[in-house]
Design a protein around this nucleic acid. Sequence first.
RNA 1: GGAGAGGUGCCAGAGCGGCUGAAUGGGCUGGUUUCGAAAACCAGUGUGUGCGCAAGUGCACCGGGGGUUCGAAUCCCCCCCUCUCCGCCA
Length: 428
Amino acid sequence: MLDIRTLRENPDAARAGAIKKHLPDRAEAVDRALAVDTELRGLVPTLDAMRSEQKNAGKQLGKLAPEEREAFLAVQKEKKVELHKLEEREKRLKHQLEEELMLVPNIPDAEVPEGKDDTLNVEVRKWGVPTKFDFEPRAHYDLGEAQGWLDFTRAAEMAGSRNYMLFGDLALLHDAVLRLAVELMVERGFTPIDPPLLVRDAAMLGTGFFPGGEEQTYRCEKDGLNLIGTSEVPVTSLHAGEMLKADDLPKKYVARSACFRREAGTYGKDTRGLYRVHQFQKVEQVIVDVADRDKSIEHHHAIVQNAEDLLQKLELPYRVVAVCGGDLGVPQAMKYDIETWMPSREHYGETHSASRFYDYQARRLNLRYRPKESKKPLFCHTLNNTVIASPRVLIPLLECHQNADGTVRVPAALQPLLGGREVLGRAL
RNA sequence: GGAGAGGUGCCAGAGCGGCUGAAUGGGCUGGUUUCGAAAACCAGUGUGUGCGCAAGUGCACCGGGGGUUCGAAUCCCCCCCUCUCCGCCA
């Protein structure tokens, strides 16, 4: 969340930010928060004075003559009732302020392009060229089913739509690509993590998925737990409530986990194949560092580069886009997506999402560090990016690397993880 | 699931109705000492928020939320978490 002071000093920036994100109702939260804040600030001095008086009165009690005591206590009792009423109101206002503040989106950076949805994202750069075929290429679902690698029918039968099962070499490829991603990141100094998949609301709220993302989240109501849609949630929450040492920063983590998404409201969208599914595996990179905007931007570029390097090892053409305001999430200040070429879609399809938050998440998570120079604790900055998400990345892997006979070429980087094999599948 | 023990500042750990925002130790900062360092010694050092140019000062905060009381870190209730034992189980 934003600092209430930011709202007081520059409410227009917060409002404009929500508008740029095409969240007009969230812009209204700015004004509601400020109204509550004003009321609260009017109340507090009165309350402080009353409490101060009460405290001192208590200390004087012992000095009083016994016959004076009874009258004194009667007066104190009355004052207590009055104080209690005001304290109730203070409590309500504080809760309200917290609620409204949680609704106010992070302010998008100036460099975030204007636009209402992903069609207005702006291409930043491209690597490789969309694959050309001298034969009729197959879509991954046709290829996969023909090879006996994929079964959507039975998966849907037992688990509902948007489910899949991977078999044989495709199951191995899926695992190999995830392992390659983890290896690359560990080489680059990231600490591997296997995180919890079920988390409390605090983690969802802290990372900015709640309020707002409840409909996208599978919830285990019996235990009050939520299945994560990304390991960003448990990993960024790792140090919630802590006071980190400046010397221990930056923290760089890479987590591999299953991810679960309800995909509510996407009926009829991307219904075929492995593109939009309820459950997938993702390797995610997370950085927690000091509160320095330039450093955050630097990290941001670095984590995008990490993902690009992996895609290049996988020999997949991709492009990087700067995500526009309307396609930006509530907590993000700036986001790059990486889109990988998917022949069956005849388009680049989103495979990665790299966000920087500055201190927006850290503030919600109460994630702080003690800077070296000043002694005042500051909120950390957080960032994250996909390293790889599978099976979605299997779409370009199968489709771009397919041969005319239906076999699939294995990029050199993956061969050691697949027993040295250069080709998967049989001639169809 | 059953039975106990506990959650206090950056960390460890006392306190168990007012004199406690909190002993003590560690850490950290500054100083003395030293050619320099270590050690030793001295001093300072919580977080948030209000007022103030500042020095300073009011208030809140001892896992979270309620309650008792003129007054709660301390007493009572609920919840969360950690640990030990028993049961169950991968």
